[in-house]
Amino acid sequence: MDPFVVLVLCLSCLLLLSIWRQSSGRGKLPPGPTPLPVIGNILQIDIKDVSKSLTNLSKIYGPVFTLYFGLERMVVLHGYEVVKEALIDLGEEFSGRGHFPLAERANRGFGIVFSNGKRWKEIRRFSLMTLRNFGMGKRSIEDRVQEEARCLVEELRKTKASPCDPTFILGCAPCNVICSIIFQKRFDYKDQQFLNLMEKLNENIRIVSTPWIQICNNFPTIIDYFPGTHNKLLKNLAFMESDILEKVKEHQESMDINNPRDFIDCFLIKMEKEKQNQQSEFTIENLVITAADLLGAGTETTSTTLRYALLLLLKHPEVTAKVQEEIERVIGRNRSPCMQDRGHMPYTDAVVHEVQRYIDLIPTSLPHAVTCDVKFRNYLIPKGTTILTSLTSVLHDNKEFPNPEMFDPRHFLDEGGNFKKSNYFMPFSAGKRICVGEGLARMELFLFLTFILQNFNLKSLIDPKDLDTTPVVNGFASVPPFYQLCFIPV
Rank of each mutant, 00 (worst) to 15 (best):
N277E: 11
G296F: 15
L54I: 13
I223Q: 06
K383F: 07
S127L: 15
N398G: 14
R157C: 10
P409I: 06
K399E: 15
K52F: 05
H368A: 02
E250G: 08
N202E: 15
Y80V: 06
G298S: 08
S429I: 02
D188V: 07
E328R: 15
E328M: 15
T299H: 13
I289C: 14
I123N: 04
Q356K: 01
S390E: 00
G228K: 05
H353G: 02
S140L: 06
K383L: 05
E154H: 11
I45R: 04
V75N: 00
A103G: 11
S180R: 06
L11M: 11
Q279K: 14
M255F: 12
Q276P: 12
T301K: 15
E142V: 07
L388Q: 02
R442V: 10
F428G: 02
K121S: 11
C151L: 10
F65A: 02
E300G: 12
R186I: 01
P427Q: 02
C172V: 08
E72V: 04
T305C: 03
G98F: 08
K59T: 10
A297F: 12
C486G: 07
N378D: 15
E400S: 06
R307V: 11
D89A: 06
D89Q: 05
R186V: 04
N418P: 03
E93H: 11
Q252G: 07
E354A: 02
C151M: 12
P363D: 02
N231C: 12
L87C: 04
L7I: 08
F487P: 01
S51Q: 10
F482L: 12
I60K: 04
S393Q: 01
C13I: 15
G384R: 06
E400H: 09
E285H: 12
Y189S: 06
D414T: 11
N286M: 06
L43D: 06
N398I: 12
F69D: 03
I213H: 09
I88R: 05
L197E: 01
L87V: 04
R157S: 11
H99N: 13
Y80H: 09
L90T: 08
G437P: 04
Q324W: 04
H230R: 07
I387C: 07
F114R: 06
H368K: 08
N231Y: 04
F100H: 12
H396K: 15
L445G: 04
V76W: 00
S365K: 03
I45A: 04
R333E: 10
L77F: 11
G384E: 05
L306E: 00
R157G: 10
L311G: 04
R144Y: 08
E253K: 13
I60G: 05
E122R: 14
C164G: 05
S280F: 04
K235H: 10
Q484I: 06
D224V: 04
F476E: 03
L237N: 03
D2V: 13
H396F: 09
H99K: 14
E81Y: 05
L36D: 02
T364S: 10
E325K: 10
Q278H: 13
Q193Y: 13
A430L: 10
Y424P: 02
Q192L: 09
V473N: 15
M426C: 04
T130H: 14
F94E: 01
